[in-house]
């Protein structure tokens, strides 16, 4: 077992690295993230110049690594020069992909030289003075500020969590709480806000998305979500909390059919950590968190928490 290396979690001055998956499937996650950071008065920059990190195409295996490194050399430089040097990623794949690229760019290799040559051609200079964290780590670092401003608590809520594989299993030594087999970053945030976080078998299993699998080999998605939910229903939670738009998509959209097949009658709302934080801080669940975009209705959870004005 690897010991967790304690790491400094920056509390402020964030450069928000937007995710094209979140923006495409659950824009409420991104809106919630901005809402949370503003509400707790954290300084952050939402820079329109930032490009996609190409992480998902990197894993699907349809984009070579060199252009990916070059585009992220630009993203890293933008953040470095912005004055907001703590890059906070909305997506675990952006998080690990950016770390991969930073490592290449800070080393010496033919890949690095070619990426920097392309930067030169574009009239850009490589500049790296950034830190890279996932947004769930930013919430953990700011738990006190969130608690101080929260309008609702999670008292009496049984929750299970799913940490993204690309958060826990690539830079496994960097997991901020717990370890890669059992990351507890979201768990800590939720229990800090009053929830009872419960374990379940298959906690570290993939969400079933597999990027192209959900479209081209749905048998994979079907089998994995079934295996995952077989474990989750043993814990009988009120809520499943994720940290990745892709995991949210797979676990949320496939749930109805899988639970039906497993003979489990109760819905389990699936929410991303940013959406949940925003709701607890008083955001409009529809117009900020975007809960209408979810496959499983989130209203039963909101009623339990005491949020008024649900449709």
């Amino acid at each position: 077992m690897y010991a967790t290396v304690p790491k400094d979690m920056p509390k402020d001055d964030y450069y928000l690295l937007k995710s094209c998956q979140a923006g495409s499937w659950y824009p409420g996650i991104e809106k919630s993230l901005r809402y949370v950071l503003s509400t707790i008065d954290a300084n952050f920059l939402d820079d329109p110049k930032q490009s996609s990190c190409i992480g998902c195409a990197n894993h699907i295996g349809v984009t070579p690594f060199l252009p990916i490194v070059a585009l992220n050399a630009r993203n890293i430089s933008l953040a470095s020069l912005s004055g907001k040097r703590n890059v906070v990623c909305n997506c675990p794949t952006c998080y690990s992909n950016l770390k991969d690229c930073k490592n290449i760019l800070d080393g010496s290799s033919a890949m690095r030289d070619r990426a920097l040559k392309a930067m030169e051609k574009a009239g850009l200079e490589y500049n790296d003075s950034i830190t890279i964290t996932h947004v769930s780590e930013a919430y953990l670092a700011n738990l006190d500020r969130i608690k101080a401003k929260a309008k609702y608590s999670l008292k009496g809520i049984r929750a299970v969590t799913h940490h993204g594989c690309h958060y826990a299993k690539i830079y496994y030594r960097d997991v901020a709480s717990g370890n890669f087999e059992r990351p507890t970053v979201i768990d800590d945030v939720l229990s800090g806000l009053g929830a009872e976080v419960v374990d379940y078998p298959e906690r570290s299993l993939c969400c079933g998305l597999g990027f192209h699998h959900i479209m081209l080999s749905p048998d994979y998605t079907r089998a994995v979500t079934r295996r995952k939910y077989s474990g989750i229903i043993e814990a009988d939670p009120d809520l499943l909390v994720t940290m990745c738009a892709g995991c949210t998509l797979s676990l949320d959209m496939c749930q109805e059919k899988v639970l039906q097949e497993l003979g489990h009658k109760k819905d389990i709302p699936v929410v991303n950590i940013s959406e949940l934080m925003a709701i607890l801080l008083g955001a409009d669940p529809y117009l900020v968190a975007g809960i209408d975009l979810h496959g499983v209705p989130v209203e039963p959870l909101l009623e339990k928490i005491g949020v008024e004005g649900t449709r």
Binding site: P27, K49, A70, A118, K121, A122, G290, D292
Partner: peptide, 30 residues
């Protein structure tokens, strides 16, 4: 309703001059 357009994953699109830099990077890496 959330202020996002159907054709973009971004609420605010990347400015054209920055898109041009992105295109140069993609071309220069073959």
């Amino acid at each position: 309703e959330l202020g996002y357009r159907a054709e973009d994953s971004r609420r605010v699109e990347i400015p054209e001059e920055d898109l041009e830099k992105i295109r140069i990077l993609l071309r220069e890496t073959d």
